[in-house]
Amino acid sequence: MSEFIRVSISEEAHIAEARRHALLLARNLGFSRTDAYHLATAVTELAANIHHHAGGGEVRLRAVARRGAVGIEVVARDDGPGIADIGLALRDGFSTAGSLGCGLPGARRLMDEMEIRSEAGRGTWIRACKWIAAATAKIAC
């Protein structure tokens, strides 16, 4: 439905760049402030994961539509070490990096949908969506 916004994550400042793009896109689409912050925080967590665990990758954002709803799709992709146990990574309090371990499960709660594919040594691909009712959106679809 629309062009991708692609943010390459190769240094820390790019995490904030991904966040800014997410906030802007959410505002342009007519997301409420809470939905926009939910999305932007989840994007921050996903981008931070790429930076901290994989060393680099990219985040792509785009507006999507389905019957009665518009949304923002986030795809976070990296060629890092992969997630050995996705179930474990989604559990609150689990971390391999000595952090609190609420980034990935937190991001999943903030988004409406999340799908994770990962292969050891090959990288990780995460697709997540946040939807709002089409009636409240600012764009026709």
Partner: peptide, 14 residues
């Protein structure tokens, strides 16, 4: 703290 930030933090479990 903004209300939307508070909501987000709680939703995240943080």
């Amino acid at each position: 703290m903004r209300p939307a930030v508070a909501l987000t933090l709680v939703e995240m479990g943080r």
